[in-house]
């Protein structure tokens, strides 16, 4: 008789893992905390570097899922993970022969960086807010007017010891470039500035996109980290940075300050790790057995990972990893 696999987390990695396992005839139960599947991608507008609408990816995944025979349960928060199954917040215990943890990441809470005034000053936004506004079809300042000057700040909640986030969240650089381009195209008269520490264009087509943003769209890139934001008399935001390439401090007022927020490891990782004897990385992300041949396996037999639960990843990487994880689960079940 076929053995059952439980997948914890119904984002893209979880859905893809479930699909691949069920194609191989393995009974699969996909658990999702929210009321719908899709994870972080649900709130996203378009995907870099191709500007593919996020819903196209999600729609197709959901469509495939419908005919797949995967059992899906939403509004099911998993509290404890063990090799033999999971326990839900309701207390219900679900047995499994293998568990795949695909719980992804938590968006950095920009309010923690108090100096940027998110949630305090009008017209300070996060990249997540901008995706939501783009989805709603209307990006505007608090008073409804169109911005004439927009600043993006990279690495908010990444590479920042002050908020215990030493790691690079990897996908934010390209997200910042993507949104800068989207806003520039929406407001061609606006000046758009990106303040960065390093620009890390790791994926195919990313560097080209960055260059396109610079050359075709005249988006300004200033190497320097904004260190403070303050309100101005007319409800705008004054920012201070160093223009490190000229060695001079720089200040300006902007209509919108957009904080490019990073990826934080889930608080649940530590709980899962304590329950099941899993290893965490210093960043709080769960540690795969190794980074090469066993990158979707945990240090505990029968518990597997896919997607951003082990490190910041983009959608394509998460989807590919899901297939690998399904492959490793299949092998494991054969051996067991």
């Amino acid at each position: 008789m076929a053995r059952r696999v439980i997948i914890v987390g119904g984002g893209v990695a979880g859905i893809q893992t479930a699909l691949t396992l069920s194609q191989r005839g393995i009974p699969t139960l996909l658990l999702e905390r929210e009321s719908e599947l899709g994870g972080k991608l649900t709130g996203w507008h378009k995907l870099f570097p191709s500007f593919t609408p996020a819903h196209e990816v999600l729609d197709e995944l959901r469509q495939r899922l419908n005919g797949s025979g995967v059992e899906v349960r939403t509004q099911c928060e998993v509290c404890h993970v063990e090799r033999s199954g999971v326990t839900l917040a309701s207390g219900e215990r679900l047995a499994a022969d293998a568990v795949v943890v695909t719980t992804g990441f938590t968006l950095f809470d920009a309010r923690v960086k108090e100096e940027y005034g998110y949630g305090i000053y009008d017209n300070v936004y996060t990249t997540a807010d901008i995706e939501r506004m783009l989805n709603e079809g209307r990006v505007a300042m608090r008073d409804g007017s169109a911005p004439r000057r927009i600043a993006f700040l990279h690495c908010v909640g990444s590479r920042d010891e002050k908020v215990c986030q030493h790691h690079c969240s990897k996908v934010c650089c390209i997200t910042g470039v993507k949104q800068a381009m989207e806003l520039k195209e929406m407001f061609p008269e606006a000046d758009v500035f990106n303040f960065y520490m390093d620009i890390r264009m790791f994926g195919p087509g990313y560097e080209e996109m960055y260059r396109d943003a610079q050359q075709r769209l005249n988006i300004h890139f200033v190497r320097g980290r904004i260190s403070e934001a303050s309100p101005t008399l007319d409800g705008r935001v004054q920012i201070k940075a160093e223009d490190t390439l000229t060695g001079r401090p720089l200040k300006m007022s902007v209509d919108m300050l957009i904080l490019i927020i990073g990826m934080r490891s889930n608080a649940s990782n530590a709980v899962f790790a304590a329950d099941a004897g899993l290893q965490c990385q210093p960043s709080g992300f769960l540690a795969p057995r190794d980074l090469f041949l066993h990158n979707t396996e945990s240090n505990v037999g029968g518990i597997f990972y896919a997607g951003a639960v082990t490190a910041p990843k983009n959608i394509g990487e998460s989807l590919s990893e899901a297939v690998v994880a399904a492959d490793r689960v299949t092998e494991y079940l054969k051996r067991a």
């Binding site: 223009d243 000229t246 001079r248 401090p249 720089l250 200040k251 300006m252 007022s253």
Partner: peptide, 8 residues
């Protein structure tokens, strides 16, 4: 005098 580059 301020050394700042004042883009305003």
């Amino acid at each position: 005098r301020p050394r700042v580059i004042d883009l305003d």
